[in-house]
Amino acid sequence: MRRSKTMELGVGVFMLAGILGLLFLGLRVSGLTFDMPGDTFRLEANFANIGSLKPRARVTMAGVTVGRVTAIELDSEWYDARVVLELDAGLEDQLPRDTTASILTAGLLGEQYIGLSVGGDPETLGNGDTIRDTQSAIVLEELIQQFVSNMVND
């Protein structure tokens, strides 16, 4: 019977290790956090062009991650992109109304993310408000095209 006891222990440790491993993958590898949904608030922002921005992309302020992109959809009224952001609740009613959202690229070829920079308006953005002042993604092809046509004009 002793053999089956050690066997049971081995299997138990094996399964526990598997569950802990899954936990490790969730927390450390995918960066999952157990924040309550109430700990965030929503903002919207319209961009003329989002480049290759993806849902779950980071939202940063001064380089610090303060939230994520949760949804991207086409606004059929203006034919531009409406991006839904989810930001830390600590920033609710703190950001000035003229905050700028711009789509930035990490490095030359890195992922795209949204950077927020604050303005000076005394009024603040609350849950569900829209950021008016946005700056689209820089599309490399357009840049080159502009550069080339400038050269020709010169």
């Binding site: 969730g26 590898v29 995918s30 960066g31 779950r56 992309a57 980071r58």
Partner: peptide, 10 residues
Amino acid sequence: QASVGFVEDI
């Protein structure tokens, strides 16, 4: 952590 999704990848 920025690129791995819990549901979609793991």
